[in-house]
Amino acid sequence: MRHWTLALLFVPAFALLSCAKENAPAGAVSTAPPAARYEAHLAAGSALPPGATPTNPHAGDAAVAKQGALLFATMNCDGCHGGDAAGWVGPDLADGRWRYGGSDAEVFSSIYYGRPKGMPAFGGVLGTEGVWTLVTYLRSLPAPPDLPTESWVEQSRP
């Protein structure tokens, strides 16, 4: 089922505003880029490369998460990741599993810089504030119970 949802037109102005406000990810040390690493990375010699770990200024803010849900539609994220971020041509972002790490800083990196296989870098149009807004939305999605099993046993009974 296609779940492409509400898209509003206020965002370009919103994005411009946030671009004008700041160019570097909030919380980043100005001389160091945010870490490209993520939890699941293996590091040779257990030595992770250096890099700042930006913190989400809106972590846990329900109002910002709601704004992020609108942004998710307006910036056409739902066109690839599906309505409610449940997966479409792009991966499910609501299943509690993450290719590139699911912490705020890791999700920030994925959106800001893009990822291989066609995830565009949105940092240029959204700016730091816009990306944090999206991160806040995605992290607000209820963590589903981890159900690795899909079973048809019940329905095969008479």
């Binding site: 089922m1 296609r2 056409n76 066109g79 690839c80 309505g83 149009v125």
Partner: peptide, 19 residues
Amino acid sequence: ASHASYLKGTPYIGVTSPY
């Protein structure tokens, strides 16, 4: 149907359509 915003190189759709 919903309003769609054109952002070059991203989806330009605007619908929720369960089957």
